[in-house]
Design a protein around this nucleic acid. Structure first.
Lengths: 344, 344
DNA sequence: AGGTAGTCTTGGAACGATCTAAGTCACGGG
DNA sequence: CCCGTGACTTAGATCGTTCCAAGACTACCT
């Protein structure tokens, strides 16, 4: 894009020396003009800019980097295909731009695992790293953290010496339970996320909230896929009579639950209420319209970017911070009052 | 994560000069050893490698790049959150690696539109570009194509002078129609994808196949979202009697159709068969189990990478190629014989 | 007139690698 | 005894920038 610009279409890129020659000034002066430094007179400024435009000059980032030792680039490792990561990325770009940084991405996929992504990003000379949902253990994370400033999103990192930004999952789960109890539900089941990151805390929040209300926790194993929702709903249909509400480990699981229940003729939320977790795009689709717990992607991304930038632009020796964000309950169409019939 | 390595943990990175000094050889010799060039004796080779290890030496990519004018990096623009793009990325990495290239990613999101992504990637000195589903028009694409080798995935590019790799959508739609006709369906409706890339060709393939079978095409407007599937299904329920099969514009639309029909008590595929398009992860979920048309992500990615690399590593002046891949029909659980009752 | 301040401009030395061409050394043949 | 040969090694130039210290010129003040 950039309409390809004028100048030699391909092959040789114009250099600063050529621009300076055409403008009839020295290399140094041209350099000052190009990077907008104070000093040059209006006349030379104009001459250089004209020459640069004519030659289609673009500064060589490699040379600049070699000299300056600053790339002003942030690397981000993420999972393509994960809708929440997409929301985060959308917020990372403007946040980085406000701080004067560019962003390069590295995907975490089976063929290109996290450590490869990290190395690739470092090789493309990023100065700081955002890991959206890291796989690495604390030791690896710590090793990475000494090489460059790192922030982890969605998981705790301060024991590994790096900053982290994440939702306060126990509070989110508790808020979901509170809503259900307010609606009159008492038999509330949690389909958990197994060993998924965050699952343990959601489980903990659920258990604590249930007990706070004087209710018995009822946790069944699951994971963060639709499959596990389908299985859980199957068990529900097979005879877990009395249960009027389900708190799923995440939205995908919740969708599995809702679909299976509805297909079996159970009314959601008339007979059973369902709450998801994450407020993924899935949950927002109007024909799904799932009540769920939202994390604020925009704020999360912004804080993570700012944490890394803060270390980059000065305070290197801050102690690692673990920033907890309050989740927000988004009430949509899969929750309603406990039905009189099934209430125990 | 490379276990942080020995050497000064942060601050100063070791340079080749320091390695050479520690090994007691010249900078040039150290350089030869580091990049594995033939020449150095076994003794000096070992001395240099030992010194490099001790200092935790890592070559500075900026300096290397400045000198060599080759980054061996491929840039990829994609939509995070799109599952098919995730599949492609997964295949891009090994394909690039086989050709000796690294990959950097730029996201196409509302806050960071395509042209920004492209510029960012070029600034990080990628030598070639893969656009997964470009937004740019032919003029912009052509402008980009003269700056560096470009391949577009999922859309035609040869009129804009760049290579493209895409599925033969008309053939995919035709195969879907053929299957339905084989199953005895005659009133087959197509919910199209509006002005989405690819939608026109799918529509064309559908129309041609219907006429080939002596049937009347029946196209309704839609787009590539669940919403449009929901709307289309609504119209079907409102009284489009006689229709026994729906070919959706893509999987998301198909899921909207199936969900809405089932929720209204219509049996899929007993009463109505539904076919999607794309074989996204969605379609593969066992509780959705959608019959759909698949594109081969692995092959697509590989061919696109190879096209760009071929121009990079020699043949610059090949005419642009438009590579068409045959889609594959994946028969799952949403298609069945036309029901005797509803057959016209 | 001489000094000094201020504004604008400049050449040379970095940055850290690679490449080229020229060096050193030991050895064996004439 | 000299020289060519082959196997290693090295100094110096180079890539395209930015930084630094100093240079040129005008203008002002005493």
């Amino acid at each position: 894009m950039t309409s390809s610009g004028p100048g030699p279409p391909n092959g040789h890129r114009a250099t600063l020396v050529e621009v300076a020659a055409l403008a009839g000034v020295s290399r140094s002066l041209a350099s000052l003009v190009i990077r907008g430094a104070p000093g040059p007179s209006a006349a030379s400024r104009e001459a250089v800019l004209r020459a640069a435009a004519e030659l289609g000059y673009r500064p060589d980032p490699a040379a600049k980097l070699l000299r300056e030792h600053r790339s002003r680039v942030l690397g981000v490792v993420f999972d393509p295909g994960d809708p929440f990561h997409a929301d985060l990325l959308e917020a990372v770009y403007p946040a980085a731009e406000r701080c004067g940084y560019e962003v390069v991405l590295g995907a975490r996929v089976p063929t290109h695992p996290e450590h490869r992504a990290v190395e690739g990003l470092i090789r493309s000379r990023c100065e700081g790293l955002l890991l959206v949902g890291a796989e690495a253990d604390a030791v690896q994370l710590r090793g990475l953290g000494v090489r460059l400033p790192v922030a982890v999103i969605g998981r705790r990192g301060d024991e590994a010496g790096v900053d982290s930004v994440r939702a306060a999952d126990p509070r989110g789960a508790a808020a979901a339970v509170d809503l259900l109890v307010d609606l009159g539900h008492r038999r509330i089941r949690h389909v958990d996320g197994g060993r998924h990151p965050g699952a343990a805390e959601r489980r903990r929040g659920y258990r604590a909230a249930m007990r706070r209300h004087g209710l018995d926790p009822d946790v069944v194993k699951g994971d963060h896929t639709e499959e596990s929702g389908v299985r859980a709903a199957g068990r529900l249909l097979d005879g877990a009579e009395g249960i009027t509400a389900v708190l799923a480990g995440n939205d995908r699981c919740a969708v599995g639950v809702v679909d299976t229940l509805r297909r079996a003729g159970v009314d959601v939320p008339g007979d059973i209420s369902v709450i998801g977790y994450d407020d993924s795009r899935l949950a927002r689709l109007t024909h799904i319209d799932l009540t769920t717990v939202a994390q604020d992607a925009e704020q999360t991304a912004r804080l993570a970017v700012e944490a890394v930038v803060e270390r980059l632009d000065g305070d290197v020796d801050l102690p690692p911070r673990d920033i907890l964000l309050n989740p927000r309950l988004v009430i949509r169409g899969t929750t309603g009052p406990a039905s009189a019939l099934r209430r125990t």
